[in-house]
Amino acid sequence: MAIFLAFLGVALVVIVTPGPDTAITIRNTLLGGRPAGILTALGVGCGLTIWALATSIGLVALLTASEPLFLAVKYAGAAYLIYLGMQALREAIRPAHIHHAHAPALPHSRLAPIAAFRQGFISDLGNPKIAVFFPSLLPQFVPAGQPSFLSLLLLGVVFALITFTWLTIYATVVAKAGDWLRRPTVRRIVEAVSGILLIGLGIRIAAEQR
């Protein structure tokens, strides 16, 4: 139990640190409301679960051992974040829907549920940090003498569930302030900031060494 509690402590510190998943969840919540934010969080959680399964069966070790494969995942993930960031900047500069600066936000969603899930899922699968992070973190908390496959998978799923819960809280808080945040002027500022952050994160991932 002590080992598991230690894992929870480390996981919480990592999860609450803002990153690409947080930025995408906040932006999608503004575009599609709380449901889109939760679906984005679900996509992230599913991506993490796949990473956990791949770590448990040794596929991640093969990925990190192969420089071409690792670079392909890294650059694909970075390119996707930059693409999302460019979309946000475009929306900030030339919004698809022009409204009066003090008009209330549109009541309907501007982001399809499947798109919200897809963005969270792809952004997480394309994050090479997970490919390095899971194999280095999870084995440290596997109790001696326990089957490594089940233990690694369980720890990875727990990490994914905590991440989903945390991002859902983010989505709920942002949705509560949605009417104000989605006012045209405020929304354009948020789009610009999130676009810059996503592009910056994409560039950083592409430029980072292992």
Rank of each mutant, 00 (worst) to 15 (best):
A79I: 13
A72P: 09
K74Y: 09
M86K: 04
L69P: 01
Y80R: 12
V73R: 09
M86N: 05
L69I: 13
G85L: 06
A96C: 01
M86Y: 08
I93V: 12
R94P: 01
Y75P: 03
V73W: 09
I82R: 01
P95Q: 02
Y80P: 13
A79L: 15
H99W: 02
R94G: 03
Y83M: 11
A79Q: 05
H97Y: 09
H102Y: 00
G77Q: 12
V73K: 01
P95A: 05
M86I: 14
A88P: 03
A88D: 01
L81E: 11
H100A: 15
G85S: 02
L69Q: 04
I82T: 09
R94V: 10
G77T: 14
P95H: 04
K74T: 08
Y75N: 06
L81A: 12
H99G: 05
A96K: 05
L81W: 07
M86E: 00
A101E: 02
Y75R: 00
A88Y: 02
R94N: 11
Q87E: 03
H99Q: 12
H100D: 15
A88F: 02
A76R: 12
L81Y: 11
A92M: 05
A72R: 09
A92P: 03
I82K: 08
A79V: 15
L81T: 08
I82L: 12
G85M: 04
H102G: 00
F70S: 05
V73Q: 06
A96F: 02
L84F: 06
I98V: 15
L84H: 02
L84Q: 01
R94F: 08
L81G: 10
A79W: 14
A92S: 13
R90C: 06
A88I: 05
M86W: 11
L89F: 12
R90M: 15
I98K: 14
I98Q: 13
I93A: 08
I98W: 11
K74Q: 15
